[in-house]
Every structure is written in C-alpha cells, then in structure tokens.
Nucleic acid binder design. Structure first.
Lengths: 120, 120
DNA sequence: GTAATCTGTTACAAAAAGGATACCGATTAC
DNA sequence: GTAATCGGTATCCTTTTTGTAACAGATTAC
C-alpha cells in the first residue's frame, strides 16, 4: 500500500486531461447525428436530400447539424449550378483526422452486436 | 464515368452497415456522460461520491448513467463492507474493448484543442 | 396546368436529457 | 449535540434535442 504522493497527483492530472479531451471531442461531434453523418460522407459526397433519406433525418435537424459541422471545418458545402440547384456536402481534409474515431466506433458497434446476439 | 452498378450497390450496403454499427455504439455509450465516466474509471476505480465530484455530475444523473453502464456489462459495482458503506465502481474486462474508442476520442480532443488555439 | 424535383426555413409540439436541491438512515469526528 | 461522511432516491424544474408539417421560389416532366 505504499503509493508515492506524486504518482497519485500525476494520475489525477492525467485523468483531468483525458476528461477535458473527451469532452472537447464530444462538444464537436457529440449528439445523435454528427458521427452518423460523417460516417456517410466518409463514403462519398452526398446532396441534402440524399443525406436526409439515407440517415432518416428531418430537414430541419439536418440543416442545423450540417451547419455546425461546416463551422468546425469538418465538412464542405458546395452549391452546384444545376437546374434545379443542388448542394453537395463532402468531407474535408480536416475531417480525415476523425478517421480513427469513426473506425473505432464502427468496429465496436459490429463487435457489440455480435456479442449481444451470441449471448442469450 | 463508367461505374459498375454492383460497386454502387456494394458501397451502399457497406455504408448502411457502418451507419448501423455507429448507431449501435452510440446507443450504448452515447450522451453527455458515459464516455467521460469510462474515461475516469479506466484510470482507476472510484466511489460514487468521487465520481460525482470528479465529473461534476449530479447524483441523480450519475446514478442513472452508472446503472445503464452496468446493465451493458461495461462497469462493475461492488459494495464494500466499510463504515459507512462505500461502493466501488470499476471497469470490466468487456469495457477494455472500448479502449480503442476512448483513446481515439482522447487523442482527437487533444489535437483539436491544439488546432483551435493555433489558428486565430 | 399539375405534379414533382431541388434546398432549405418557419412555426409549433413533444420528448428526452439534464440539473438543483433536499432528504433518507447509519455512522464518525469533534 | 452538531456537523459531516457515505450511496442513492424523490421531487421539481429548465434546457436541449428532436420531430412534424407546411411552405418558399425555381425548375422540369407530363
């Protein structure tokens, strides 16, 4: 039971640092939709209606989520000069930094579903 | 512009699979607190009040979150025969599978904060 | 002319999530 | 005897999030 005080302190600040970082991430991509939208866009650019259908999200919410993602530099919005006008959303170079996060979430979800199904 | 139909279809089902997986994960560890709580517990077991203080979470919410995490096998709850009784919460072997997710979130948060600070 | 497409916005309602505070019974420290 | 500790619940309330439906203005297809 001999634990040096400095170790404890060190551990506590490291813990605080980790909490802060996780919170920061959640502030940007937390909530019900952002990570799902990024998951879709990672697999190719989409138009507004396409995203709405594919994610099953109402236009009002979708609009808000996309704006927030764009403000954080995680997606790009391009108005195409078609008739009628279409708007393309796509990932950005910066959102590539989220690959690790998205992949981890994806893998865990797959793994968890398997586990649930195989443990009655 | 020659894209084989089968590729598109393949891409779509892969995308659906990914959406499902990410949603599954979010159903289990989504929300404001669960990932933060796991971040803390990954760094050592805590008691109820400790968690409450460290995360800055009110007892009502904390109690609910802990129950949900326990139901999903992600944390353990141990009543200790002390006076007064204390309860220890800890990670489980299964929650180790979330290491990848938590690490990715942690790293991204650190990276993002740096980016924000260095881009005025 | 009618219906359907596109990207959003607006107004309103509902639900979910989260927070504040007091309190329980048992115990310890002063 | 007073205050503080422990884990947790109960009550009430506020905030956030989400959904629904209608609509805009412009164009195309029939």
């Amino acid at each position: 039971m001999e634990i040096k005080e400095e170790y404890i302190t060190e551990n506590k600040t490291e813990c605080k640092r980790a909490i802060l970082a996780v919170r920061d991430t959640l502030d940007v991509v937390g909530g019900k939709w952002k990570l799902v939208l990024l998951t879709i866009l990672m697999r190719g650019k989409r138009r507004f209606r396409e995203l709405s259908r594919e994610a099953g999200i109402s236009p009002r919410i979708l609009s808000k989520e996309l704006q927030e993602l764009e403000m954080n530099g995680l997606i790009s919005r391009t108005v195409c000069d078609t008739k009628p006008i279409t708007v393309e959303y796509d990932v950005t170079p910066y959102s590539e930094t989220l690959h690790e996060v998205l992949d981890a979430l994806n893998r865990w979800g797959v793994q968890h579903r398997h586990k649930i199904i195989n443990t009655p």
